[in-house]
Write a protein that binds this DNA or RNA. Structure first.
Lengths: 339, 339
DNA sequence: CTGTTAGCGCTTTCAA
DNA sequence: TTGAAAGCGCTAACAG
């Protein structure tokens, strides 16, 4: 049943070393021999044992991916990109999901899990603490972050501040002056800086335009639709003046806000303009203006960098932030002058 | 740098066999010896080599998961469930994404990829052909399908026909008679039967209620928001009478339809009732009535079954279909009598 | 171009 | 309760 390299060697009447060379396409193998070996291997249904190969070479041909959770547009798409690139090069993808951010105390992820199992690691925008990162670094394999800066670790991601500024500026350019913000980060790791980067850029852009920042117009959520709707409810039930436009830290939140707005008869964009960040699958159908990023590409690039490094090739540049693009759809318009 | 079992043995002044036994918690090890071994191992930062262990035992402590693509609510959640259960038991999760269904010709997934790498396999509702499935079976490891029936293979999933019938019946119970259907399957593997199961159940339920099935009210998509919106556009631009309610094969499609309806000033539920299947993250915020299923639980159970089998334990029952539940929200209401 | 021979780091009899 | 030794299946010198 289980056929090993020795079985093939015996049948092909060559040494195991020759089988190994022939099958791996190494040079200095007689074409005829190689052909015979291939034929025999095929005939016997031989598949080399990765474990044995790993033990002998010390390389696992496997890359680990650490994600906070899978069910989020950005992560799922980045993961897809990583997977594509890895498969393309015969690498395996070992997935580690933390199943949600854990607040400080107990994270189920230990060095043990990755140690000697993977050749490199991709960290999908987790808020790793300095100590956790240090622990990972100790393993001494190439690491790359995707989706957001991870302290002291190189990464593939957009310039979040610039993207947030572009979104905010779009609203300002349309003539809005009363602009609110739905930010993320409330349920996330405190080391996950993306929500803050975006929020700060929003504030900076507003100040630069000489516009007022009203604290009651800044509501915090966690980048999900559910939180978007909840935050919107908070915002809409406030007494007092309402903003004419809102910049949401993620498209999911923006869409949650759209749902809540419709529920309350607030028209978009007539009563309220709305812009997010991401270009989530739901955004185009929803007619949501956004600043688009392409996580699949981020994943692809991250994997490329890692693989190049493992192959000892020149490491491609990846220092430049990834591109983003403002996409105007139906959810943003100039403010309606008071009737 | 790299510390092996022999290093530990030397330092602890015992044989490698004893270290192995002590660390694995096997019986018949002197408590004092065990303690010393643990101390030394800890002190030296010893981590056993999975490759060596695999080679010696023939077991990989790894389960493979085959998914058509990751970025879909159902898959992402099921994956999360599988991951949780696997980690809990010290198993690894090797991910294989096909990056989208490939139509017949070339699928990048080969027996080679899994062979000798995993102890068991979870197939996430892929439409595997009989030959592909046979090839997988040949590897002779436990396999389980999740999310939909995979020909001849046991699986964890809801009774799709019953779920679809429940959704349809809900509309009928509300008094609707003119009911349309957005079905999936147009871009999917033809062996992926879920869309058909749901569509057929819709039709059967309609017939049972003595209601007319209008072909022009049945539009096909592929379960995504984008297709939902597109299908809705097709439906809404048709001349002639319009249905008063629509059953969507997935919540994503239903939400796509909602977006398109709003764009055209069609009010939900006043002008059109809408129900889907899934209970997608967006559904509650959107106020979408649906038949809920819990993919995370499906993943959990599938992994449990596999692990039990690998441990040689009694295999838990999993023959019963998974539960589903009708959730009525704002998108369904009795039909509005013509003014 | 091909064969021999050490390992790689563990587990697992079999003895002691 | 512990140790010695034989693999597990492959790769990588080193000879030839």
């Amino acid at each position: 049943m289980r056929v090993s390299i020795d079985d093939v060697a015996a049948r092909a009447q060559v040494s195991t070393a020759t089988v190994s060379r022939a099958l791996r396409g190494l040079p200095k193998v007689n074409p005829a021999t190689r052909a015979r070996v291939f034929a025999v291997a095929e005939e016997m249904g031989y598949v080399p044992s990765p474990s044995a190969r790993r033990l002998a070479t010390g390389r696992t041909k496997t890359v680990g991916v650490l994600v906070p959770f899978i069910d989020r547009w950005y992560f799922a798409n980045a993961l897809e990109g990583i997977d594509q690139e890895l498969r393309e090069h015969g690498y395996n993808l070992l997935l580690f999901s933390l199943g949600g951010y854990m607040h400080g105390q107990q994270r189920r992820f230990t060095e043990q899990m990755v140690r000697k199992q993977i050749d490199a690691l991709v960290v999908l925008c987790l808020g790793l603490s300095a100590t956790e990162l240090a622990e990972l670094q100790r393993i001494n394999i190439p690491i790359i972050a995707v989706g957001g800066p991870v302290g002291g670790c190189r990464g593939v991601h957009v310039d979040d501040a610039a993207a947030a500024a572009a979104a905010t500026q779009h609203l300002i350019d349309l003539g809005h002056k009363k602009i609110g913000h739905l930010r993320g980060g409330i349920n996330d790791e405190k080391n996950f800086v993306v929500p803050s980067l975006r929020a700060e850029a929003f504030e900076a852009t507003m100040r630069r335009a000489g516009l007022e920042l009203r604290p009651e117009w800044s509501v915090a959520g966690d980048f999900t639709v559910g939180q978007g709707a909840a935050a919107a409810a908070t915002l809409f039930t406030q007494s007092g003046e309402r903003p004419t436009a809102i910049f949401c830290g993620s498209d999911e939140m923006a869409i949650g806000l759209m749902f809540e707005a419709r529920r309350r008869g607030i028209r978009i964009p007539q009563d309220l303009s709305l812009i997010g960040i991401d270009d989530h699958d739901f955004s185009a159908p929803a007619g949501l203006s956004t600043v688009a990023q392409k996580p699949l590409q981020h994943g692809l690039l991250a994997a490329q960098v890692l693989l190049a490094e493992l192959d000892g090739l020149t490491i491609p540049r990846h220092e430049d932030p990834m591109p983003f693009k403002l996409i105007q759809r139906e959810s943003t318009a100039p403010p309606t002058p008071p009737a």
